[in-house]
Nucleic acid binder design. Structure first.
Length: 435
RNA sequence: GUCCGGAUAGUGUAGGGGACUAUCAUGAAGCCCUGUCGAGGCUUCGACCCGGGUUCGAAUCCCGGUCCGGGCGCCA
């Protein structure tokens, strides 16, 4: 059976009046008005209306059309007809409709937007949920977001790398890891590419990035955490933390601009107008952030405290746009962040914040082997487990800096989406491992 | 983990001791209809999470369980 299309619905235009095209997709809706029948065909890029006058249409075509269930997959061959009354100014007069695969009835959920479905129902039936134009639009934008990230970083001289997701040791002390069985030894799912991207600074790759999964076995249960997330990670030699902060804010602006430019239809579908942020983002020191919180919040923070969810919200509200918090206390940042030479109480670490939540954190890293080893020890970790990592610092590693940026958080804050699960096809949280 | 809230046709909902033979929408099946675009009209179909209890009577109240949602916590 022939099942190749010649066009997506979005590629059919009024200028093609009279031309024959083949469209393939799903039966979105059927509206039978008696003497005239409309069938809406939907594909990834949009919809097209088939119009059949029962008196003049091929009886074979009419019979097929009448027998179709919603969401069945069809191939339609027809001629484009200019018609002011049709949505988009044209319609298709089918000469042939082939049913490629019927859909059972009833459907597990509505695809037309007439009836809501709960998140749980939607995720259980994600294949059908993604057929909904709104959801499809989100994932088209997610694609363009990652594509814009790659373009930007490549332009800045970054090489894309892939680091292992199965690892022998924790990247850092605190975060809980998922243990797995690896032949006869214990192994874990990696929580961050941090150590490996740093090792590649010693490898002389100079500027690297990775877009990949990270795993955290934390039992969190919020609308902004996942146990499997996508991290956009960079590491760059011969740059300090201020340099990579600049890179980060420029990247964010570039992503927003690219999405605004390339995803006009998707944005329209979800009803979102992008506010493109302006670089440079405001910079707050950690001290200023604490002060700001204590000015505006009832929950007071002391120097040395990490920012609570409430503090993030309070400060975010005051700032109102993307901003950085920098110069964090050494004691609450990971062992590999570089302390200021003239004030070791503070590190060259930063967080990049959206008013709603943290998007990224980064720093200049320690490149001195002995100091790094000492810091690992100071944080109560056993340096022996880090031999594979520390070794790379003994034979010439440049000063370097980097950051990790949460891809899901970037998309959800950009599009004003409440729940992080809405920007992941198959989210993994404490309650869900399937589908 | 914790504090709230919830579970009713395929989907989304109303109903908070008797008027429930359970509301509405969507859907499915059938009929009418030549410009629909959430088409419209008529007919039909389809549901009270599980287990105990209270009561003459439970979808409704109580206890236990399971599952779900939101907030917080956890998240170097």
């Amino acid at each position: 059976m022939e099942f190749r299309r010649t066009h997506y619905t979005s590629q059919v235009t009024q200028e093609m009046d009279g031309q024959t095209v083949k469209l393939a997709g799903w039966v979105h809706e059927i509206r039978d008005l008696g003497g005239i029948m409309f069938l809406i065909l939907r594909d990834r890029e949009g919809m097209a209306q088939l119009t059949m006058f029962k008196k003049t249409i091929d009886p074979q075509v009419l019979e097929t059309a009448k027998s179709l269930s919603r969401e069945s997959v069809i191939l339609v061959e027809g001629s484009v007809k200019l018609e002011a009354k049709a949505p988009g100014g044209y319609e298709l007069v089918p000469a042939r409709i082939d049913l490629l695969n019927p859909a059972q009835s009833p459907l597990p959920m509505d695809t037309t937007g007439k009836v809501n479905a709960e998140l749980d129902t939607r995720l259980d039936n994600r294949f059908m949920d993604v057929r909904r134009p709104r959801v499809n639009a989100v994932f088209q934008i997610r694609h363009h977001t990652l594509s814009a990230v790659r373009n930007f970083l490549e332009q800045e001289g970054f090489l894309e790398i892939n680091t292992p997701k199965v690892v022998a040791t924790a990247t850092e002390g605190g975060t809980a890891l998922f243990p797995i069985t690896y032949f006869d030894t214990e192994a874990f799912l990696n929580q961050s590419p941090q150590l490996f991207k740093q090792i590649m600074m010693s490898g002389g790759m100079d500027r690297v990035f990775e877009i990949g999964p990270i795993f955290r076995a934390e039992e969190h249960d919020t609308t902004r955490h996942l146990n499997e997330a996508t991290s956009i990670d960079i590491e760059a030699s011969f740059l300090d933390h201020e340099d990579v902060m600049q890179l980060l804010e420029n990247l964010i602006v570039h992503v927003y601009e690219s999405v605004a430019k390339n995803c006009a239809n998707s944005l329209k579908t979800i009803g979102k107008e992008l506010d493109i942020p302006k670089a440079p983002f405001k910079r707050l020191t950690y001290d200023e952030a604490i002060e700001l919180n204590n000015e505006h919040s009832k929950e007071l923070l002391e120097w040395g405290d990490d920012l609570s969810t409430n503090a993030e919200k309070v400060i975010g509200k005051v700032m109102g746009e993307h901003y950085f918090i920098k110069d964090w206390p050494t004691e609450i940042k990971p062992y590999y962040t570089q302390p200021y030479e003239d004030n070791p109480e503070l590190t060259k670490a930063f967080d990049m914040m959206h008013p709603r939540m943290e998007l990224s954190s980064g720093a200049q890293r320690i490149h001195d082997h002995d100091l790094l080893r000492q810091r690992i020890q100071d944080q109560g970790l056993n340096p022996d487990g880090f031999d594979f990592y520390l070794k790379a610092f003994k034979y010439g590693i440049p000063p370097h800096s980097g950051w990790g940026l949460g891809a899901e958080r970037l998309v959800m804050t950009m599009l004003d989406i409440d729940n992080i699960r809405d920007v992941v096809l198959f989210p993994r949280d404490r309650k869900r491992v399937s589908p």
